[in-house]
Simulated assay, not measured.
Amino acid sequence: EAHGTGTPTGDPIEIEAISSVFSESRTPGDPLLIGSVKTNIGHTETSSGLASIIRTALAMERGQIAPSATFKEANPELRLAESNLKVPTQLQSWPDVNGVRRASINNFGYGGANAHVIMESLPSFLASQGHRYNSLGLPQAMNGWHEHMQPRVIALSARDEPAVAAMATNLKEHLESLVDLNDEEAYLDSLAYTLGQRRSKFPWRAATSVKSISDLVSALQGPQMKPKKTASKRNIGFVFSGHGAQW
């Protein structure tokens, strides 16, 4: 993920630096893929590094590398082919390199402060540490690390405070009625996912972190599940001045 402002001076310098580090380990048939989120959303100035991190994280999560929007022909001064570099022009799958997804991010400040971040996808990192994932994307037991040690966030949401309290009571009664539950871990995983990801978000909410059904039953009748009203939504406007720091 390059800084890539599209300037005739800055881009060749950045490409030369990238090439000096990576080109020798690449071949014309296996080039290093480069791009910049600025082709998609423009230069967000002081938040441009964060935008690059978000783009890279999404690419890692989905296993897909997005093309650079509007890119047609590279500046000849970049000499991409000679450096075994390539700018993707269409959506493509992340290359499979032993299950590892890793990327570098460049970001350069107007005042001379430069930053470089190396990111790696969580599954491949945990695998290197001896952990693995289950079907819901949660770490599984391995090398003494157990699922039951992983807390789940249980969230409730409704249009008013009494409705949230009623939901908590109903859930508590349902949990108390469960008998001979074969897989408590899987049940909690599904419950946390359904309540957190598959339900509408309303103004009044309550949430707690639990490790077992008995923990959840206790929490549902405790003070930690007292409903609270979220802050009202506000409209946010983003204003970018283009290239440079001037308005």
Score class of each variant (00 low, 15 high):
Gly6Asn: 04
Pro8Phe: 11
Asp11Met: 07
Glu16Cys: 01
Ser19Phe: 01
Ser20Arg: 10
Val21Trp: 00
Phe22Ser: 02
Gly29Gln: 10
Asp30Pro: 04
Leu32Tyr: 05
Gly35Tyr: 06
Ile41Pro: 11
Thr44Ala: 13
Gly49Cys: 09
Leu50Val: 15
Ala51Val: 10
Arg55Cys: 07
Ala57Gln: 07
Leu58Ser: 05
Pro67Asp: 01
Phe71His: 13
Asn75Leu: 11
Lys86His: 12
Pro88Gln: 08
Thr89His: 00
Trp94Tyr: 04
Val100Asn: 10
Ile105Met: 09
Gly109His: 10
Tyr110Gly: 15
Ile118Cys: 08
Pro123Asn: 09
Phe125Tyr: 13
Leu126Val: 10
Gln129Cys: 13
Arg132Pro: 00
Gly137Cys: 03
Ala158Leu: 03
Glu161Tyr: 00
Ala165Gly: 03
Ala165Lys: 14
Asn170Met: 12
Leu175Ala: 09
Leu178Tyr: 04
Leu191Glu: 05
Tyr193His: 11
Tyr193Phe: 13
Arg199Gln: 14
Arg199Glu: 11
Phe202Gly: 00
Pro203His: 10
Pro203Ser: 11
Arg205Trp: 03
Ala207Leu: 09
Thr208Ser: 08
Leu216Tyr: 03
Lys233Glu: 07
Asn235Asp: 08
Phe238Cys: 05
Val239Trp: 14
Val239Ile: 15
Phe240Trp: 02
His243Ser: 08
Ala245Thr: 15
